[in-house]
Design a protein around this nucleic acid. Structure first.
Lengths: 352, 352
DNA sequence: CTGAAAGCGCTTACAG
DNA sequence: CTGAAAGCGCTTACAG
């Protein structure tokens, strides 16, 4: 830039003012001259130096569990899109999940002076993670105290209070799973089985609780719950066990032989549901004739799956852009964002 | 850091030396004192300032077409993993594809002084994109001239020469699609139809050419080619047309009624194949009884698809980590990386 | 409107 | 081994 200034015959200050959006803008003649010089010399501003001199870095940190999981990569698309629109850039951290690695990512982003941090991915609320959650919270508070903005997609960070001023973009897990239960009951299902992740995985727990609540409101008994991995293999494993039960006629086995599926399985995510269907099929069970299966998320890549999967559609990409909007706005809206989601009943839970 | 130094009673230089990996390391007593002070004050180094003072920023820029596409998000996982192992951080740009937006991303990363840039995603080699390719190349050369490292996953940037010193991590599109054709011929298929992306999309073109070559080596006639969008909807649309042809008995229609599928469709990507299967089914065609379908990529999320999809498995995540390894190594290997891929024959192309 | 100068928070030859 | 000082490439009050 020094060279640009000299080439244009102006001071560094002036060159800086025309090249970057300063409030004070030099005269037209000078501006043109500087711009021409910059173009001629192929000048590219050093964003690091700018970041050091200004208070903001133009970077937004995105923390998620696994970038290759379609749930997160769709959120990432939304985040990336908005950030790009704002002429900023995203720093990515794929942590593998868990507050400890999330804390590390926050520290890294803080060191790089990211203007804002968006955290996606379920919170873990267990005894065991209490210490790590505490550290994550401390790290976020320190980051915020130094001027950083924070948004969490899903649930608030465990232990955080409204006063912390972290933005939350809630995912309507509870409402949608409640609705899903209602719709499935309405479609005639009576016996349910829930495949959930380990206890303490808040996203899974919310979906579980919402579903049970929905059954209750429909006047049905609570569903049996099987805890398993909150991923494809978890769904598969649980389904294999279920298939063995059904095929051997144990207490959990098929009841209404002939008239519709014996049981309707609600897997706490689409990916789990897909694993479950694979497991059931391998054991000779047909979907939905023998067992009905519903998922959650409406993952795009799975929309052509057969049988078409009943699920709850989440506006994942919008959740990402909304989080960015809140965290980057001068005057962010105070009212909580209400995500639009809805139930999609498809072939996988048809009853006759 | 100034505060840390004062708190520990040492100079800024000394504090800097103990806190960051300098070659000169102060005595143990002093080191301990400084570390204690840093911990007590909760000191976090300002990476921007470090980047400005040092020559490297600790950031790697990743450019891809669409972070929500499983092909790219899997590559991103590989990249992210290696970068994290090296204590660096990734800057993400999801461009939507095309050399023009890629050029912009390169400029952005150059301004931020990313130490290296990894570009994934097919090259576009058309007349129309010639100008943009030229600009992309210029931008990359300038970036490299200023000390940046460049790696491209897939094909070399259009117009680049070995002397440019860009690392290339080739994707074995040609070899694998050739092998796929051979295996399908071996399985008894005789009539083929290729669903490819628009001409000039190098990835698609390579797969197309490899497949035709494989057919030729098997002594078969070249397959008919239908150009369509290189995505799910492209596969769907082409399949609908095909289904209409087959059902109405036009020249392209079913020949060997009864004994195996009339035609084996090779879609240039799994995602296209999934769309194609959806389209065919909607028109009453069964896979693989009426039409066989093969894809390419072996996308993880689609492995439980029914019918199980015949495809070419690509080590996507490894491609990502390999690109990072090359671009971050002091002394990168000169021999080209040979990606391990292989054909997986599954139910979607069974013949009887 | 323009420029000289201080400052952003570090690192690193260069002396001591 | 340690420290004083210059420098990384910008921005921005502060003067003029």
């Amino acid at each position: 830039m020094y060279e640009v200034a000299r080439h244009a015959g102006v001071s560094l200050a002036t060159a800086s003012r025309v090249l970057n959006g300063s409030s004070r803008r030099p005269g037209d003649a000078i501006s043109e001259r500087v711009k021409a010089s910059a173009a001629e010399l192929g000048y590219i501003a050093n964003a690091q130096a700018q970041g050091l001199a200004k208070k903001n870095s133009g970077m937004l940190g995105l923390i998620l569990h696994d970038i290759s999981d379609p749930y997160f990569s769709t959120i990432a698309r939304g985040v990336q899109g908005s950030v790009q629109d704002q002429q900023k850039v995203v720093l990515l951290a794929s942590t593998g999940g868990g507050p400890a690695s999330e804390r590390r990512a926050v520290a890294t982003f803080a060191a790089r002076r990211a203007d804002a941090i968006v955290i996606a991915g379920t919170r873990t609320d267990t005894e065991k993670a209490a210490g790590e959650n505490e550290l994550l919270l401390t790290e976020l508070r320190r980051y915020k105290a130094n001027g950083g903005k924070v948004a969490v997609i899903g649930q608030p960070v465990v232990g955080s209070v409204p006063d912390d001023g972290f933005h939350t973009v809630p995912v309507p897990n509870r409402q949608l799973s409640l609705q899903l239960a209602a719709d499935l009951a309405c479609a005639g299902h009576r016996r349910f089985l829930i495949l959930a992740g380990p206890e303490g995985l808040v996203t899974s727990d919310e979906r579980l609780a919402g579903f049970q609540e929905g059954l209750k409101q429909a006047g049905l008994d609570p569903a049996e719950v099987r805890r398993t991995g909150f991923n494809r293999d978890g769904g598969y494993d649980a389904a294999v066990t279920l298939a063995e039960d059904l095929n051997s006629g144990t207490p959990s086995a098929r009841t209404g032989a002939g008239d519709g599926p014996a049981v309707c399985v609600f897997a706490a995510s689409d990916v789990m549901a897909i694993g479950a269907i694979a497991g059931l099929r391998e054991h000779g069970l047909r979907i939905p004739e023998d067992v009905a299966v519903a998922g959650f998320d409406d993952i795009e890549t799975l929309r052509d799956f057969t049988p078409a999967l009943t699920t709850a559609q989440l506006p994942l990409s919008s959740l990402g852009s909304e989080a960015v909007a809140r965290v980057l706005a001068e005057d962010p809206p105070q009212d909580p964002f209400v995500a639009q989601g809805h139930i999609i009943l498809r072939h996988s839970t048809e009853t006759s």
